[in-house]
Design a protein around this nucleic acid. Structure first.
Length: 288
DNA sequence: AGTCACACCTGTCCGC
DNA sequence: TGCGGACAGGTGTGAC
C-alpha cells in the first residue's frame, strides 16, 4: 500500500484543493468502505453533509480532514485506496462519492477494499490532537515532534527482529514493507537482526535513513508500481525508479554488486543484499 | 510482550 | 485457454 510518502502526497493534494470547501452531497456506494465507522453509513452520510472542511492532517499512513464541528474524517487508503478530485468517478471500484460546493467531486476509489473512511472525535495524545482511531499510532519520522532518541530507546528494549519493529506502527509509524527494506539496505543492516543487539548509532542510522528515503520518495511524488497508487489527480509517482532494494531480487546490489536476495519474512517478501546486509547467525538447532 | 495465524478483498501473473 | 496457486504496498484481532 501507500506508505507515508504516498499518503502525504495525497494529503497535500487535499490540503490544496478542499480546505474551505463544504460537502454538499455524500453517497456511500459500498458499506465495507465505512465498516470502521461504527454508527454506520447513514450516520456518516448525515453528519458529513453540509460540513465545512477546515484542514488536513496525517500521522503515519492515516490521513484526515478536520471539519467544522470539531470532528475528523479519517481516511485510510489500505492497500489500494485512492482519494480523487475532479469529475464524478465512473470506476467500478468507486466506494464513496462526495460533492463539494465548488462542484468538485471528492471520490474514494478502492479496488481491494482494505481502506475506508470514518468520522470521529479528536483526542489529545502527548500534546497533539489526533482522531481517536489514530491515538495508538506512534509519531512518524516526518513529524516535527518525532523523538528519534526515544524510539531508539524503545528499540533497544525489543527482543524482536528490527524489520518487525520498523513495521510496527506503535513503535514508529509510516514505514511499510518497501521503505523498511530501503532503510535497512541504506543502513546495511539485515532486517532479521534482533533490535536489542544493535548499537545506538546503528539504530539511529536506520531511523535517519528511513527519514531520508521517505523524504526522497516524497520529492518524487511517491512510489507507484502501477495505476493503483496515485495522487488526487490520478497521477503516479516516480520513486520506483530509485528503489535500491525492494523488488530487486536477482539484480546486482547498487553498492557492492552482489546478487540481491529475497526472503520470506512475516509472510511477506524482504529484499536485501547478502553481502552488505549479512543475515544474523541462526541459533543452532539443539541436537536430538 | 511478542509471535503467529488469520481475516478482510480483488486482481495479476505464472506454471501446468 | 483455463485452472489453481502464489503474490501484492496494510491493519486488526484473538490465541498461545
Amino acid at each position: 500500500m501507500p506508505e507515508l510518502p504516498e499518503v502525504e502526497v495525497v494529503r497535500r493534494g487535499l490540503d490544496r484543493h478542499v480546505v474551505g470547501r463544504t460537502i454538499s452531497a455524500v453517497r456511500v456506494h459500498h458499506p465495507r468502505a465505512v465498516r470502521r465507522h461504527e454508527a454506520g453509513a447513514a450516520d456518516l452520510t448525515a453528519r458529513l453533509l453540509d460540513s465545512r472542511i477546515t484542514g488536513t492532517g496525517r500521522r503515519g499512513k492515516y490521513l484526515w480532514l478536520t471539519v467544522d464541528d470539531g470532528e475528523a474524517l479519517v481516511v485510510h487508503l489500505g492497500m489500494s485506496g485512492q482519494m480523487l478530485l475532479g469529475p464524478i468517478q465512473k470506476s467500478e471500484h468507486l466506494r464513496i462519492a462526495t460533492l463539494l460546493d465548488d462542484g468538485t467531486a471528492m471520490s474514494f476509489v478502492d479496488q481491494r477494499t482494505f481502506g475506508g473512511w470514518m468520522l470521529t472525535d479528536l483526542v489529545t495524545v502527548d500534546g497533539t490532537e489526533v482522531p481517536a482511531p489514530v491515538a495508538h499510532i506512534a509519531r512518524d519520522p516526518l513529524d516535527p515532534r518525532f523523538d528519534r532518541a526515544a524510539v531508539v530507546k524503545v528499540l533497544r528494549g525489543k527482543h524482536s527482529e528490527i524489520k518487525r519493529q520498523l513495521l510496527d506502527q506503535t513503535v514508529v509509524s509510516g514505514i511499510g514493507n518497501i521503505y523498511a527494506d530501503e532503510s535497512l539496505w541504506r543502513a546495511k543492516v539485515n532486517g532479521a537482526r534482533i533490535a536489542e543487539t544493535l548499537t545506538k548509532p546503528t539504530l539511529t542510522s536506520i531511523l535517519d535513513h528511513a527519514t531520508d528515503v521517505m523524504t526522497d520518495a516524497l520529492g518524487q511524488g511517491g512510489t507507484s508500481f502501477d495505476s493503483l497508487y496515485v495522487n488526487v489527480n490520478g497521477e503516479s509517482g516516480y520513486f520506483d525508479r530509485s528503489l535500491d532494494a525492494y523488488g530487486r531480487e536477482g539484480e546486482p546490489c547498487r553498492r557492492c554488486g552482489a546478487v540481491m536476495r529475497r526472503d520470506k519474512f512475516m509472510n511477506r517478501s524482504s529484499f536485501f543484499c547478502p553481502r552488505c546486509q549479512p543475515k544474523p547467525r541462526q541459533p543452532r538447532p539443539r541436537a536430538v
